[in-house]
Nucleic acid binder design. Structure first.
Lengths: 240, 240
DNA sequence: ACATAAAAGCTGTCTAACAGGTTTTAGCAA
DNA sequence: TTGCTAAAACCTGTTAGACAGCTTTTATGT
């Protein structure tokens, strides 16, 4: 890769690391780099910008934390694919520090997922429809195995987001899954009455069927009802 | 602050920095820290974990990049308030690297903002209602000054998100504003026909009025129409 | 032409040092 | 004793150099 990083650091009020981050993102932009493309090495960047390797390293780490680039030992840093890892941590942090409540998460999820299921109904490939339905069926099959049932539940929602063909939805849905993982079992445990779990899973199957049939209205209504029910269960469980 | 970081690094397959990040987030969790609370100093953490200050610094930088903590020279790191800065960069990166299209952003925005305006209509304080309406009116007043008109436009949407009383919506709406800033002028320039800009701004005022009146249905319909129109303008401009 | 070994390049981590900002401490004055 | 001030202690930002261990390139010999 040719190394033309004509941008120089204007050593102003902010710190060198922040400026270096800016230079690197600018580099990505000006060279029109796409996922997988390599960035300059730490040493070259340091020399180019006349800063220490430490500064460049901290800048790289920052970008890696946001999942904008990938680091791996021995190799040069590469531009990263869109990923929800960083957003997951942000959401988790919000919950941990009591800035976000579980109910608020569910409201956002409902808002997003009513949309993803609508789009998925319209845009899904046949393969995606099959995959989505399979996860719903597997939930039912694994009803005695909460751990696995949850896996399929999460995968079900994520597949729908992917089938919406909008990567931002995929990112947001993915971001909430880490933290949802924790409240999932509460919901499961509190659906203890006869048939409650089956009913919940059946809703998933019905949603899958609506997607298979390409019925966005039906799909979104079911999804909305599913969230209504989930929030109700959590509230009944005293989790508010 | 008492320094009990009993968690030790299990020097396993991943790198020390990642593990240190985990320890720090764990520290925040176990000590139930909330925004503003101080974290241990780099040196103390380094000694505690038996790693070099370099490693701790890179961990801190990573967390700061995600806006989970705030750094400032001379002072100890503190737990941060929820902030959309990192998410802004992630979205911008997605657009820059051609993983996200402008139209996809608008679809997400519409989805979210139809919801925020609904919630805002129900939950806004009087002060918020006034502020929202003021921004809409200021847009009209600054119709000859695109730069300022845009500022009020963005503030308008952000205020609505805040009035929804769900910080996640605020974060998401904020995150998209950085990147929307760039397409805003395209939309503005392409509403060149007589009265088109006034019409667009009038929609904002109408939305504000619906919020003032506490009419969520009307507000959400108007917001939806606004996005329909914006997307149409951008498509007509050839930006797809 | 190809396989292999050496060399060069790169990242991860550590140590030591110093500038300059911030908080705490100590001591002095009222 | 209280309140102010100056010094000390603490803390972060940045630099330089070093070495282990992994990866890519180069050179070498068959």
């Amino acid at each position: 890769m040719k190394l033309t990083m004509q941008a120089t650091l204007k050593k102003g009020n902010t710190d060198l690391v922040s400026e270096t981050i800016g230079v690197i993102t600018q580099h990505i932009r000006s060279h029109e780099l796409t996922p997988g493309d390599k960035l300059p090495s730490e040493l070259n960047l340091a020399k180019e910008l006349k800063v220490s390797r430490t500064v460049v390293r901290e800048a790289f780490r920052s970008l890696a934390a946001m999942r904008l680039i990938n680091l791996s030992v021995g190799k040069r840093a590469t531009v990263a694919n869109l990923d929800h890892g960083a957003m997951s941590l942000m959401i988790e942090h919000g919950v941990l520090t009591e800035q976000i409540s579980v109910q608020q998460i569910y409201d956002v999820r409902r808002t997003i997922e009513v949309r993803t299921v609508t789009l998925a109904s319209l845009r899904r490939t046949d393969a995606e429809a099959v995959s989505i339905r399979k996860h719903a069926l597997q939930m039912m099959a694994q009803i005695e195995n909460p751990e696995k049932a949850m896996m399929h539940d999460l995968a079900f929602h994520l597949e729908i987001a992917k089938a919406s063909k909008n990567p931002i939805f995929g990112m947001i849905v993915g971001a909430f899954q880490e933290v949802s993982r924790q409240s999932w079992f509460i919901g499961w445990r509190n659906r203890s009455a006869e048939g409650q779990r089956e009913e919940m899973i059946q809703t998933h199957i019905d949603i899958a069927d609506a997607i298979v049939l390409g019925d966005p209205l039906k799909a979104s209504e079911l999804m909305s009802a599913h969230f209504d029910n989930s929030v109700k269960v959590l509230i009944d469980a005293g989790l508010v």
